[in-house]
């Protein structure tokens, strides 16, 4: 693998992908001891910076590391943690672990889909929420669990849903 420091890559800057964000990513990559095996680490960082991993960012990373874009996309699409779509202001995650499932998480998620008018991994029209179903966040004592950002709602019932949404829509 070519050493990244030697490659100068044009940054595909656009309105949504400002140059300073690319600079931050570039400096992170340049400061790595080695890029051998660091692709996942770099993608984590890139998702932190940009919020998601659009095609242009993936291609930028590929060129910077001197690897094919397909290899980067292969990794991005393999792992569920990486997303290629922008996120809403709040990520609303519904735990679909087994413990939550047997305590009724399936009804809760259906209700959220109905109320927000979106499917999983979609963003609401007002850009406020991204709805996600996640695998076990480990708070099984509070099943079923819904999280909005860092805030955790435990023992959620169908009737609580309006209130949760209202807390963010104001």
């Amino acid at each position: 693998m070519t050493k990244p420091q030697t490659i100068s890559v044009t940054k595909p800057v656009s309105e949504d992908l400002p140059e300073e964000k690319f600079n931050e990513l570039e400096s992170f990559i340049d400061h790595l001891e080695t890029t051998k095996g660091a692709l996942i680490e770099i993608l984590h960082k890139a998702q932190d910076i940009f919020g998601y991993l659009p095609r242009d960012v993936q291609l930028y990373i590929a060129r910077k590391l001197g690897i094919p874009g397909a290899e980067v996309f292969g990794v991005v699409s393999f792992y569920s943690y990486f997303t290629t779509k922008p996120r809403g202001k709040h990520t609303l995650s519904i735990c679909m672990g087994t413990a939550c499932f047997v305590r009724g998480a399936d009804k809760v998620i259906e209700k959220f889909k109905e109320k927000l008018g979106v499917e999983s991994n979609e963003i609401t029209e007002d850009g406020l929420f991204t709805l996600r179903d996640v695998r076990c966040i480990g708070a099984c004592g509070l099943a079923p669990v819904v999280t909005v950002g860092d805030k955790v709602y435990g023992r959620v019932k169908e009737e609580d849903i309006d209130e949760i949404i209202k807390a963010y829509r104001g």
Partner: peptide
């Protein structure tokens, strides 16, 4: 530390090693 990125199969040791190398966790 190496971070996973959400793939159940990475609990399998050869898949885990592939993932540590920055590849798809197969």
């Amino acid at each position: 530390l190496k971070y996973g990125a959400g793939a159940f199969v990475c609990g399998e040791e050869t898949a885990l090693i592939n993932s540590c190398e920055g590849k798809r966790g197969e």
